[in-house]
Design a protein around this nucleic acid. Structure first.
Lengths: 146, 146
DNA sequence: GTTTAATCAGATAATTTAATCTGATTAAGA
DNA sequence: TCTTAATCAGATTAAATTATCTGATTAAAC
């Protein structure tokens, strides 16, 4: 198998997109997110806790507590979430796994892969949570029905 | 952490590139590959065994045995190796991990990611082992020195 | 034939990642 | 103040991936 983002990161992205699709300053419980997105509750809870430390979401403890975005959705880029969870090594390390790969000693795919990687990085840097709001709403409605 | 190809697949790609950089029909032991590429010997051996089953490499048993490519390097595409080891799910499954993601019910990144993914797929389909031969030789020489 | 050096097969171990459990703390609301 | 519903912290378990081990088989070279 092969993966772009870890499960943690996929879930984290789904969750912040879900929060962004809600009204401002509304607080959402891990339980609701878990049910709507069909993610294990304790797991998404842990992920959101770590995103709290990263300053991407806020948490409110106690009854009727939950999570909300720490900034305006237009200020949160997808790359910020990825960086907080998976880190940015994927955009630096060699696609063929050569530890010695560098511009001076490039691997056979260095240049071609470099272009693709940069495109992916730019996409994640361009896209902010608010830009994806409408699409997220549609998606969540569809998930909840299934 | 995050990854494009599994370690198995990275090692597999490295190994077949190494074989392609050798003279035709030359047989190379897992031990040599392991040392030159600094990959655990038993592990690369197992990977090459599985690539033998996939028809990408040949194996010769017994003393002075080893592995060689089963086809001409110009007939082996990188995507063939990836497909044999990691499979092609990465080029099909949703980048955000939504199991219900489809053209009818796309995830928020569906279209933008689709373009990048297609580019990556095409690159791996275009590139054959022989095209990368010279670059591989340089790389291996550099690794062996370190 | 015997030795030697290789693949091959299957089991096992180690590590990493994913998921769950337990209990403490917090704060809203009756 | 008490109950309830939430986060939070840390430990534990489960599953997948990565790596190693053991022994069998194979075939070249002496």
């Amino acid at each position: 198998m092969t993966v772009i983002f870890s499960k943690k990161c996929e879930y984290g992205l789904q969750a912040v997109l879900y929060l962004a699709a809600k009204e401002d300053s509304e607080v959402t419980s891990a339980d609701e997110i878990s049910k709507k997105l069909k993610i294990p509750r304790e797991f998404v809870s842990k992920i959101l806790q770590s995103l709290t430390e990263s300053g991407i979401v806020n948490s409110k403890k106690g009854k009727s507590g939950g999570f909300s975005l720490a900034k305006k959705p237009e200020k949160i880029r997808l790359i910020d979430v990825v960086a907080a969870i998976d880190g940015l090594e994927i955009f630096k390390s060699c696609v063929l796994g050569f530890p010695q790969c560098s511009p001076e000693h490039p691997c056979p795919l260095h240049d071609k892969w470099g272009v693709l990687r940069t495109n992916a990085y730019n996409m994640l840097t361009d896209e902010t949570l608010d830009m994806l709001k409408d699409k997220t709403l549609k998606k969540v409605r569809h998930i909840s029905k299934t």
